[in-house]
Simulated assay, not measured.
Amino acid sequence: MATSYDYASLYRSSVGFDRIFNLLENAQRGRSSNDWPPYDIVKTDDDTYRISIAVAGFAQNDLDITFQSNLLTVTGKKQE
């Protein structure tokens, strides 16, 4: 799933750099990317990755997966 970083442990060991961590936290909050549906990317080998997407209510036949120009697109349509 998407990861959120906690910089609290770094505040103690980096006196004077607290402004940088505040900027990082604010930038992380202001992300415009869409983190829905939840996903997980797992490195299985040196050049191999597995992507798991939580799409409750959809069967494998309901999903259309396309890859073009370094962009992976997953669309779902419920069949009636």
Rank of each mutant, 00 (worst) to 15 (best):
Q28D: 14
Q68R: 14
R19D: 14
A56V: 01
N26K: 01
A59M: 02
S4P: 07
N22M: 00
Q60T: 09
W36Q: 09
V15H: 13
W36I: 02
R12C: 02
L23V: 01
I20N: 04
W36A: 13
Y39D: 05
D47Q: 14
Y7Q: 04
D6Y: 00
D46P: 02
S69Y: 09
T66M: 05
N34A: 05
Y39A: 15
V42W: 04
P38F: 00
Q79D: 11
Q79P: 03
D35S: 06
S69Q: 14
Y11I: 13
A2R: 11
S52G: 08
D40M: 05
D18Q: 11
N70S: 14
I65N: 11
R50H: 06
Q68N: 15
T73V: 09
I20M: 07
Q79N: 10
F58P: 06
D47C: 07
D35I: 00
S33W: 06
V15R: 00
M1S: 09
Y5D: 07
P38A: 10
A2G: 13
Q28W: 03
A56I: 00
I65W: 10
V42R: 14
D6R: 00
L10R: 07
D35K: 00
R12P: 05
A59R: 12
R50I: 04
Y11W: 07
G16H: 02
I51V: 15
Y5Q: 06
T44E: 11
R19S: 13
T73W: 01
S9N: 12
A8F: 06
D6N: 14
D45H: 08
F58Q: 11
E80K: 14
N22Y: 00
G57T: 02
T44S: 12
D47W: 05
N61C: 06
L10F: 15
Y39C: 02
F17Q: 05
K77A: 06
D46Y: 09
N61P: 05
D62Q: 09
T73E: 10
S9R: 15
R50E: 10
D40S: 13
Y7W: 15
K77P: 01
A56P: 04
Y49P: 07
R12L: 04
A54L: 12
S32T: 02
E25V: 04
Y5C: 01
Y11S: 14
F21D: 09
L10I: 01
I41W: 04
S69P: 03
R12M: 00
A2H: 10
A59S: 13
R31S: 13
S52L: 03
S4D: 12
A54M: 11
P37M: 03
T75F: 01
L24Q: 10
L24I: 04
D62M: 01
G30P: 06
R12H: 04
D40A: 13
S14C: 08
Y7K: 01
N34F: 14
Q68G: 02
S14M: 07
I20A: 07
D35A: 12
N22I: 00
A8V: 05
T66R: 15
D6L: 01
T75P: 04
D64E: 15
I51M: 14
F58G: 06
D46N: 10
A27K: 08
I41F: 08
S9E: 15
Y49N: 10
Q79L: 03
K77G: 10
E80N: 13
G30C: 06
N70P: 08
Q60E: 09
F58S: 09
D62V: 05
F21Q: 08
